[in-house]
Nucleic acid binder design. Structure first.
Length: 844
RNA sequence: GCGGACGUGGCGAAACCGGUAGCCGCAGCGGACUUAAAAUCCGCUUCCUGAUGGAGUGCGGGUUCGAGUCCCGCCGUCCGCACCA
């Protein structure tokens, strides 16, 4: 009698059973080895999307597998609940950001629960609740106390749409990462975290992260951007503004110092500002420099331009030698000292600039001393070589010359070897309501005073309005007026809130330990940390992952937690993609069609509404703008959680994009039903099936290895193979046992079906609590192997031979093959290559 | 421009250390069961050829008894950074 697995009935039942048994509660006191599996927590937008489903399914398989292999697993879930969308919703729909967020959380929690994830919901947290952000405020104050927080007036990236400041990391091609608006420069007093104090550590720490993708490590390395070089001073001659008679520059190429033909400063350089006050033409030029955007296309096409200040700088190695000083549009105030010297022979920008302003171009590095006078044309020569035309440096290699110049500068006192970083301190002030209030009080007498810890949390006021742009905290009638904690006089609360990336910089610690009276218990947190496997999108390769690494190291410096790296293992999963469908209207606009609006045919697609063909576009990341999203909700309704989970793991390697398809989910559904049929009760047949036993043990070992490596697609293929083998096998005791084992190894992937089948097989307890099947190593090796017979490297025949057959025997067997004899036509092979248990290659 | 990844059937892909290319799935084709359909089951499915056979892992070279895998040079796609001195 065949039956069908009914996910709609079974899934809620087993979810309730797990909940009742507390199966997925992590026990801090467990003697078992600890395993912390974490997926990046979601922003509560209101609905989960396929990307979440894929992300959490991967983590879930690993978490369940670890439980089966004897680990105490921590697999928590929470909500990255502060941020702009809640405020946008407040402005558009007149709902309070808190209400909107909490409703979204409730909806998404229900959706996640339907997918049957093995999560410890007892540790759920939302960053927007005072019992989370209050502890964050305490940590902020600890960092403050240790000098890792400071306030400074600085030019900031101002997003005119979101009306807030953005960190450098949040500006992409000159636009706000969220709003897409062109970012403006403004001067504001801002709070900063001293991430640059940790630049060396953060860079060097990458080396130890063996279980991180190289790509992410490289991205962080480039972002931190360490450059070693020489910082030195030029004396300035001419009509120099008061107190500006020295110009400090930074170079990574001190070896080329005798190739210098000019010096240049940024338009915002203090010297340029001073000069502009008395030189209207310069002021105009500087304005033009500031106006030009930093967008990729602009930078690439933009001409190198400069303004000759008329001043000259004295070459540090020759007081008789002076160079012109320009204000130039390609010099950045943000990097190094905002001033450079130009060596046109060996730097493309400098060369472009020198050609334009007819400055001398001298070769000072040549491949060999013989080519010292080879002219430089349109391309700067950046190759390694020996120094030429450079007085005492002549004949030195580039690296030797760098050291020699630095040594000379240090000895003579005009410069020193130094390191500069691309990384900037992290500006965390946001002029927003829906974020963690910065626990500082501004007092006219005492300055910025930390809120005393016993007055934490500083709670967001509920009664705020969003009818005008800007920060509702700032215009709240009473909230900001408080007495100074230090002197008691009238003072003002800081009305900026923290960047939401602060919230996500320590949530994984709070998951590990959540006492009421402090952010975490050090001993308990250290039992779990670092996170053994962290899984999320590669879009967080820099921002979130760098900030979290910094925060963890900052906590170590304050003595609160002795963990250097928060995530020992990182996996960045690919996106879920879908075909796109579109046509073009009379006006040439592209009209997108949602998947449910088109009917896929064998050679294209037609719109259901009109019956007319539409173009099948590229397979792309699911996005609202291209309408190629598939909502997981209805899919789970139709096929159940297990089929969706199975599909998420099938086919595509997890780091690559997964193309969603109707056919794919259908296939997953069929397999779930097939598994169900495989465990159909039969009347206890006797007998052994050695061949099947081998396949079984190989599958168990293979799937375990694949899951450990997060190669879920390979594990899935092995499970299919095993299922095929079991189906084909004649009834036997082995076959009956194999079906049960199969259920255990699919349990992490399709847990509801596994429970249902487990119960049907009459097994005690939950398969969620079962252990991973034992593997008999003896059954992993074959006793007979296929030997490939090649002639001149081409496959001509195969033969079976007992494993371990010696070389002479294999050679003899190969020479006995009819096909081989025919090809050799009586000749004796010149050479015979024998690879035991693999092949014989006869070279004729 | 700099840095990185990738390129294998109609599609998603697999291939340990250089050793039988294409496991597994999807789609397709043929068949069984059925009044029929769905579901299920069996078989075929890289390309060319009727078969024997030949070709084949983006392109061109190289190393090797043997290359998807290693080396050199191209082409293409994607990602990150971007005037970083």
């Amino acid at each position: 009698m065949t039956s069908r697995f009914n996910p709609h009935a079974a899934e809620p039942r087993w979810q309730a059973a797990w909940e009742e048994a507390g199966s997925f509660r992590a026990n801090d006191a467990s003697p078992k080895p600890k395993s912390y599996v974490l997926e990046m927590f979601p922003y509560p937008s209101g609905r989960i999307h396929m990307g979440h489903v894929r992300n959490y399914t991967m983590g879930d398989v690993l978490a369940r597998f670890r439980r089966m292999t004897g680990h105490e697993v921590l697999h928590p879930m929470g909500w990255d609940a502060f941020g702009m969308p809640a405020e946008n919703a407040a402005m558009e729909k007149k709902v309070h950001p808190g209400d909107w967020t909490r409703q979204n959380i409730a909806a998404m929690r229900a959706q996640l629960k339907r997918l049957g994830f093995a999560l410890d919901w007892s540790r759920e947290l939302a960053t927007c609740e005072p019992d989370y952000y209050g502890h964050e405020q305490a940590l902020f104050l600890d960092l403050f106390k240790h000098g890792l927080v400071y306030r400074k007036e600085s030019a900031v990236n101002w997003d005119p749409v979101d009306m807030t400041v953005l960190a450098n990391e949040q500006v992409i091609d000159g636009r706000g990462w969220r709003s897409g608006a062109l970012v403006e420069r403004r001067k504001l007093s801002q709070w900063f975290l001293r991430i640059t104090d940790f630049a060396d550590e953060l860079l060097d720490g990458l080396k130890g992260l063996d279980h991180w993708p190289d790509k992410v490590k490289l991205m962080q390395e480039n972002w931190i951007g360490r450059s070693r070089g020489l910082r030195f001073r030029f004396a300035i001659t001419g009509d120099v503004p008061a107190g500006q008679d020295m110009l400090e520059v930074f170079t990574t190429r001190p070896d080329t110092i005798f190739g210098a033909s000019f010096a240049a400063i940024a338009a915002d350089h203090p010297l340029a500002l001073a000069l502009a006050e008395r030189d209207a033409a310069l002021a105009t030029f500087a304005d033009e420099c500031r106006r030009t955007g930093t967008a990729a296309a602009e930078v690439e096409t933009q001409e190198k331009r400069g303004y000759d200040t008329g001043l000259r700088v004295v070459h540090p190695l020759d007081p008789e030698w002076t160079l012109p000083l320009f204000v130039a549009n390609f010099v950045l105030m943000d990097y190094g000292t905002g001033a450079v010297f130009g060596v046109p022979g060996h730097d493309q920008r400098d060369l472009d600039f020198a050609r334009k302003y007819q400055l001398p171009v001298t070769r000072v590095v040549a491949t060999t001393a013989d080519t010292a006078d080879e002219p430089i044309h349109d391309e700067a020569d950046t190759r390694d070589g020996v120094i030429v035309h450079s007085r005492f440096l002549d004949g030195l290699k580039v690296e030797e010359a760098k050291a020699a110049v630095i040594a000379r500068a240090e000895a003579d006192g005009w410069g020193q070897g130094t390191t500069v970083w691309r990384l900037r301190d992290w500006g965390v002030s946001r002029q927003r309501y829906w974020g963690t209030p910065i626990p500082i009080i501004h007092c006219d007498s005492c300055g910025a005073v930390p809120v005393p810890k016993d007055q934490l949390p500083v709670v967001l006021p509920e009664d705020v309005s969003f009818d005008v742009p800007g920060n509702p905290l700032d215009r709240h009638p009473t909230w900001k007026h408080v007495p100074c904690p230090s002197c008691g006089k009238d003072a003002r609360r800081e009305t900026d809130t923290l960047d939401t990336f602060v919230d996500s910089s320590w949530y994984f610690i709070r998951f590990a330990s959540q006492p009421d009276d402090r952010p975490f218990d050090r001993a308990v947190a250290e039992q779990w940390l670092p996170v053994g496997q962290y899984i999320g999108g590669v879009e967080h390769a820099i921002l979130h992952l760098l900030y979290a690494r910094f925060w963890t190291r900052a906590l170590r410096r304050t003595g609160l937690l002795d963990i250097a790296e928060p995530f020992s293992g990182l996996f960045t999963q690919g996106m879920v993609t879908h075909e796109t469908y579109f046509d073009t209207d009379e006006a040439g606009r592209t009209l997108w069609y949602a998947p449910e609006e088109v009917e896929r045919t064998s050679d294209g697609a037609i719109a259901r509404s009109s019956g007319l063909p539409v173009t099948v576009g590229r397979v792309e990341k699911m996005s609202k703008s291209k309408k190629n999203t598939v909502d997981p909700g209805p899919i789970v309704d139709q096929y159940g959680a297990d089929a969706v989970r199975w599909f998420m793991l099938s086919d595509s390697p997890p780091e690559r994009d997964l193309p969603w398809s109707e056919a794919g989910i259908e296939g997953a559904w069929r397999f779930v039903q097939r598994l169900w049929r495989l465990t159909e009760a039969n009347d206890a047949p006797e007998g052994e099936d050695k061949d099947l036993a081998r396949k079984l043990h190989r599958a168990v070992a293979g799937v375990a290895a694949d899951v450990e490596a997060l190669s879920f697609n390979k594990a899935v293929a092995k499970i299919y193979e095993l299922a095929n083998a079991i189906e084909k096998a004649a009834p036997s005791a082995t076959r009956t046992g194999a079906a049960e084992t199969l259920i255990r190894i699919v349990a992490p992937m399709v847990p509801h079906l596994a429970e249902e089948a487990w119960a049907r097989l009459g097994r005690e307890g939950l398969v969620a609590d079962a252990s991973w099947p034992e593997v008999d190593p003896a059954l992993l090796v074959d006793d007979e192997v296929t030997i490939a017979i090649q002639v001149n490297g081409k496959l001509r025949d195969t033969i079976m031979a007992p494993k371990g057959t010696d070389r002479p025997t294999l050679e003899a067997l190969a020479l006995g093959s009819d096909k081989v004899l025919r090809l050799l036509e009586g000749r004796t092979p010149k050479k015979v290559v024998v690879v035991p248990d693999r092949l014989v290659n006869l070279v004729a």
